[in-house]
Amino acid sequence: MFQFNSFNMFPDISRPFNNSYKCYSVSMFPGNDRQDVEKGGKIIMPPSALDQLTRLNIEYPMLFKLTNNKKSRTTHAGVLEFVADEGKIYIPYWMMHNLVLEEGDLIQIESVSLPVATFSKFQPQSPDFLDITNPKAVLENALRNFACLTTGDLIAIKYNSKIYELCVLETKPGNAVSIIECDMNVEFAAPVGYQEPQRQPKAEEPMEDEPMHHIDSQNFFPFSGEGNRLDGKKKKNEKPPLHHIAKNHVRGIPDYDHPPFGLLRFDRSVKAISDKPEPKAEPENNNAAHFQAFQGPGSSLRKSRK
Rank of each mutant, 00 (worst) to 15 (best):
E181N: 12
L130E: 07
M212I: 13
P297K: 00
P259Y: 02
E140Y: 12
I273F: 12
E86H: 00
M62C: 08
H244S: 14
V168W: 11
A190H: 15
K39S: 06
A189P: 13
E187M: 14
F2T: 08
A246Y: 15
N160S: 12
K71M: 09
G78S: 01
I273A: 06
R265N: 14
S224C: 04
A117P: 12
T74Y: 10
K271C: 13
N69D: 13
L101G: 03
I157Y: 04
Y21K: 00
N285S: 06
I155S: 02
G104V: 00
V37T: 05
M95W: 05
L63A: 00
F7I: 08
N57I: 03
S27P: 11
N228P: 15
A49P: 12
G41T: 05
F4C: 06
I43T: 04
F17P: 13
Y256R: 08
A288P: 08
G227F: 15
S126V: 04
K280H: 09
E170Y: 09
L99T: 02
D51R: 02
L114P: 07
M62H: 10
Y256Q: 12
N69I: 11
P173K: 04
S304T: 10
F266M: 07
I163F: 06
R305E: 09
P135G: 03
H244A: 13
N287C: 15
S269R: 01
T150I: 05
S304N: 07
F4E: 07
F220Q: 02
E81A: 07
N286T: 09
R265H: 14
N286P: 14
V186H: 12
G78K: 03
I253A: 01
N32S: 10
N5S: 13
L263K: 14
G298S: 15
F29H: 01
D51Y: 02
F122C: 02
E38N: 04
S48N: 14
R55Q: 12
L143A: 03
V116M: 09
I44N: 00
V138A: 05
M9A: 11
F7E: 08
I179P: 06
P279S: 04
I89S: 01
H213F: 15
P240Q: 09
D255N: 08
W94Y: 02
M184H: 09
K39N: 09
H214T: 08
K280R: 13
I43Y: 11
